[in-house]
Amino acid sequence: MEDARRHYLDLIRQDGVRLSPPLARAFAAVPREVFVPDGFHRRDGSRVLPADPEFLRSVYSNDVLVTKLNGRQPISSSSQPSLMAIMLEALDVRPGQRVLEIGAGTGYNAALLATLGAEVTTVDVQEDVADRARAALARAEITGVRVEAADGYTGGPAGRYDRIIVTVGVAGISPFWIERLLPGGRVIAPVEHAGMHPVLAADPSGAVSVICPAGFMSAAGPLGARHDGSHPPPPAGPLTGLDPAAPARWGAPLEALAYRDLWFAAGAWHRRVTYASVPGREQSLLAVLSGGDRYAAVVLPDGEVLASSDHCAAVALALSDRWWSLGRPPMSAWRATLAQAGPLLVPRAWKLGL
């Protein structure tokens, strides 16, 4: 087990993920397997049970563990550990601070927070998920965590917090969270942007910065409410009828993180940006939709543009060339301010803060 957890830390640190000594100790100390006592689903939908020989190896992988499905749709999980680490480092929690977690999941993230010395309240709108998280925390002998079945939009039980962390994809920041922040506090949340859920940091003043790219299961209810600034959802199926509209322009294809940087920038500049699949290509692609989603263009990682209309092609080409001409800014360079949009506060007027 010690070897498995040591390897686990190495997996989390891959791709440059930073683990502070306290967080490394927390990941090494909290037994992840206790939080998936009934097993879990892999990304491909296959199930792994505790009796399976590969159970512990799979638990201590750098991968999401899906614990609840609605049909074939995941609705609860233990997130990818490297993403959890990035979000926890961004949260910058100190011993004794009060933390509100929106989305209890398995309880594993709350256990890490408690091991870091935080006083944690974690809420989940699904009562059975909250019950299982509470039981898992008890089995792991983790103290300092209060689990409540409650609406994450309002934040559950009354109280104010030094930190708020959100572990489900949301369409914006709940105004109740900002009201509950103590001076100097921060919210870390994955907020919808062009079909993905980049992790954002917001402070009590409404200033917003970007932490990292991510994809999360989307929240229902007010936390998933569409607003006048929402990007279109991705098309239900692969885009067809696309013809070459511009050749490859960048030599080597962009690496995955740089492609996400381009994707974020395009979404900051244009509200009809989302993602789509294209026959014969495995990865999701940056897409521009128009005409009630009847027309589209996609930008490939090498800069080639495929399109079904001249207008979409021109927009996709202009967005990608604008990002390139600005020196390929990373998404972490973007800044915005929260503004009211329906029941949520959403980032407005994205600007580069270089």
Score class of each variant (00 low, 15 high):
A85I: 12
G237A: 15
Y108R: 00
H231Q: 10
A202T: 10
L113V: 07
P232D: 10
L239Q: 07
V298N: 02
S174Y: 07
G159P: 11
Q283K: 14
A28F: 11
L257P: 02
H7P: 03
V99T: 08
S20K: 12
G251A: 07
E192S: 07
K351M: 14
R281V: 13
L88M: 00
A194I: 08
A28H: 06
P81M: 03
A135K: 14
T67M: 11
V48F: 07
Y153I: 11
L83V: 09
V30F: 02
P31Q: 04
T240P: 06
R281P: 12
S290P: 15
R271E: 08
A194S: 02
S308N: 03
G39M: 04
R47I: 15
L352N: 02
A207M: 10
A194H: 03
L306K: 01
C212T: 11
S76L: 04
M1T: 15
A256N: 13
P232M: 12
N109D: 11
V191C: 13
V187A: 09
L352W: 09
L285D: 01
V129M: 06
V166T: 10
L65N: 08
E2Y: 04
N70D: 15
G184K: 02
E127Y: 09
H227S: 01
P53Q: 08
P235Y: 00
G117A: 04
G267I: 04
G152P: 09
T274H: 05
D92Q: 10
G237P: 13
G96M: 11
R328T: 11
G169V: 01
E127A: 15
P234H: 10
M1N: 13
A341G: 04
L242T: 10
L352T: 07
E54C: 02
L88K: 03
R186G: 00
A110C: 07
A349F: 08
R5K: 15
I102K: 03
T274S: 04
A150F: 02
P235D: 00
P37I: 02
A287M: 06
R260K: 13
V123D: 05
H193K: 06
R32M: 06
P244K: 04
V208G: 06
L181R: 08
R281G: 02
D261N: 09
P343C: 14
L262Y: 11
G291W: 03
H270K: 01
A104E: 05
G159E: 13
D92R: 09
R94V: 14
N70H: 13
T106C: 08
D124H: 02
G71H: 07
A245G: 07
V273W: 01
A28R: 11
A118D: 00
V346G: 09
F264N: 04
Q73L: 14
S77A: 13
N70L: 12
G221I: 06
A341F: 11
A158E: 15
G292P: 13
L239M: 00
F216W: 10
A114R: 01
A85D: 12
G224I: 03
I12Q: 00
Y259S: 05
L300D: 00
A248C: 10
R328Q: 13
A135S: 15
A266S: 04
R139S: 06
R146W: 00
L49W: 05
A297W: 01
A111V: 14
L113F: 04
T167L: 06
R328V: 14
L352G: 11
V315K: 10
G342K: 09
H311P: 14
D15V: 10
I165M: 12
S79D: 00
V48I: 15
L262N: 09
P329K: 05
